[in-house]
Computed example of a mutant assay.
Amino acid sequence: MTAAPSEPLAGSVVVLVSGSGTLLQALIDASADPAYGVRVAAVGADRDGIQGLARAERAGIPTFVCRVSDHLDRAAWDAALAETVAAYAPTLVVSAGFLKLVGPAFLARFAGRYVNSHNALLPSFPGIHGPRDALDYGVKVTGATLFVVDEGIDTGVIVGQVAVPVEDDDTVDRLTERIKAVERPQLVDLVGRMVREGFTVTDRKVTIP
């Protein structure tokens, strides 16, 4: 697999969310500094009334909602999501707690340009319960991974990772919060570099100049 950024609007990203939007807020805060060089062009969600959308609206960022239930089937939703995101011509699409798996139409449109932040050290503990699964397994180190989304579940090419030690008295909530504390700056740093400097995806390697 070889891909590179296409030539949409330089410096813009679309962020997809499903919940509270703390990762999104980190990107919004960073983008307030012109030196960061990244503009959040729009924030999309798969449901109404979430805090992530409210964060975007407070920052004056355009928002949209694309619900599966509003479409004939999952394929139609996937195509509609791809068209909606494409209208903002993003350099990069960022999944920041977006809980829907996109399909072939979306991946074809944004091949190599759709990244997701996951709260475990992939390939260990994919899925939506990374911190819980890490605790249950008894690992001593977990963390956060930014990766390029592909057709699998958290199987894409890894852009970057940051480690978090697991403490003996950790709960899922405590561990989750400590992972978030390092996940946010990693996301801001790597998204910024990918957008500002460009990147390539070749086989299992992401290169940022």
Results as ranks from 00 to 15, higher is better:
I50M: 11
P123Q: 03
V43I: 07
R193K: 10
R196L: 05
G21Y: 11
H129R: 14
R67I: 01
P104I: 01
G138P: 13
G103W: 04
V195R: 04
V15R: 13
V191H: 12
Q161S: 03
V149E: 10
V188N: 04
A42V: 11
Y137H: 15
V195E: 07
G138R: 01
T176V: 13
D46E: 05
T22F: 12
H118K: 09
G49A: 11
V65T: 12
D168R: 12
R58C: 06
C66A: 09
V115K: 06
R132G: 04
A163W: 01
P90V: 12
W77Y: 12
L53C: 02
W77I: 02
V40D: 09
A80W: 09
T145M: 15
L23Q: 15
A163K: 12
A3W: 09
R113I: 02
L175N: 03
G112Q: 00
E197I: 02
T91Y: 05
R174Q: 11
T171F: 04
G152I: 14
T22W: 12
P104C: 07
G60L: 02
G127W: 05
L135A: 01
V68L: 15
A30Q: 09
R109Y: 00
M1F: 13
V159A: 10
D150M: 05
S12L: 08
V201P: 00
T207E: 03
R132I: 10
A42R: 08
Y88Q: 11
P8K: 10
P126N: 00
A75F: 10
P131L: 01
D73L: 13
A105M: 10
